[in-house]
Write a protein that binds this DNA or RNA. Structure first.
Lengths: 216, 216
DNA sequence: GCTTTACCGACAGGTTGTCGGTTAAGTTAT
DNA sequence: ATAACTTAACCGACAACCTGTCGGTAAAGC
């Protein structure tokens, strides 16, 4: 019945990843507050001391998970942006949506992420993503200014506004009708064009494409 | 040394408010997670059972506090908006800033509100405020559309975008230099004008007034 | 006098983080 | 090669909390 405590030793790196994997999974299932460190160690089969040998606190585990999850999205966005052969509009929308995690590996987390138990996780991820992606978008806007596609006096703040809005608003389109989602997407495209000083419908198609494709 | 447990009975309403007052104070001081229900009952001088007689859980206390704090801001905003003698621009900016709690009674909370321990509080307040204020702003935009001051195709979404941005961005201007704050304010005014389809500098003065006055 | 409701405090069952001790792995010395 | 030593992963008992429950008591209202 009871597993004998066969001592298994792994490299620090390996164990840390193991802990993060299980913790992430558990936070998805039960939320950050409800998932206990006991849950983690039981599922892995290690002792309390081991967990705290690798991480100083439960919150540090959370931070590491956030770091791991966001790094992927940010580096993806920064890669997209460098593809100068692709039209700016496509790159812009793709970068924006890299933040919107749904497509990524973390897509199952996404549904749970708004439950109140995950307020911390949500906040930290959002902070991290904004901080990472805003400068990328800003650069793209400047590029658009140079080519005459955009006309933005405050590229940084425009990027902030677009990112912040899309990260909050597109958070909760799960409980919206398809019709409403379309409207929201159109409104977003319209407003983004205004903010960037772009001609009407410059962004519309690129944005609507992504929205309709990822939300079926 | 030890207070005798003289039994003091108060009306439910009175006791509830007492609990909310102390809890709010404690959440400010230590954050929601770090403030325990024991802290609350000790400071008031009541027993555990009494607390749980009035509130079913710690989170319910939080919800009641959020409700209390936001009700004020929302009703203030809705009053402002009704003053049809005041120019629309002034009403708009005033309503926007009613959400930015700094001016209100909760101004001390504000500094603590971003500490990670308060993620839940923060999230709940933001949700509640947006939900309450967005329709108000939307109405104002429609009014502006009629008088020809604005030209907004999606009043609802424009209101959302403005509110969401200002609630996130103006959150953390405490650690910014005065210069940066000014720039941020100007950028916000500029972008709000674009979003609403208003003429240049329509909103600038009203917005800059509020920002410079409330942040000294 | 009877019912309702505010109040009490012990208690169960859970949580996080600490700490001294143990064992495996890696390193140096002989 | 192997013995001796150092480092680092690992263990599990434990202290010090925490939230929410519950049977019982006392005041208020009818």
């Amino acid at each position: 019945m009871k597993e004998k405590s066969m001592r298994v030793v792994k490299s620090a790196q390996e164990r840390k990843n193991e802990i993060l994997d299980v913790a992430e999974q558990l936070f998805e299932e039960k939320g950050f507050d409800n998932a206990s460190t006991n849950d983690i160690i039981n599922r892995i089969g290690i002792a309390r001391g081991t967990l705290y040998h690798h991480f100083a606190s439960k919150e540090e585990i959370l931070d590491a998970i956030v770091e791991r999850m966001t790094r992927e999205g940010i580096s993806k966005a920064s890669l997209i942006v460098k593809e100068r052969s692709v039209p700016i509009c496509e790159r812009l929308t793709a970068a924006i949506m890299a933040l919107n995690i749904k497509g990524g590996a973390a897509s199952e987390v996404f549904d749970q992420i708004h439950r109140p138990q995950n307020a911390l996780l949500h906040q930290k991820m959002q902070e991290r993503l904004l901080e990472g992606v805003v400068p990328i978008i800003e650069g793209l806007i400047r590029e658009g200014n140079e080519t005459g596609l955009f006309d933005s006096e405050y590229p940084r703040e425009a990027a902030e506004m677009i990112m912040i809005y899309s990260s909050v608003a597109f958070d909760e389109l799960t409980n919206l009708s398809n019709e409403d989602i379309l409207k929201k997407g159109q409104a977003f495209a319209y407003h983004a064009e205004k903010l960037l000083g772009a001609k009407e419908n410059t962004l519309k198609d690129a944005i609507m494409n992504i929205i309709t494709s990822q939300n079926r």
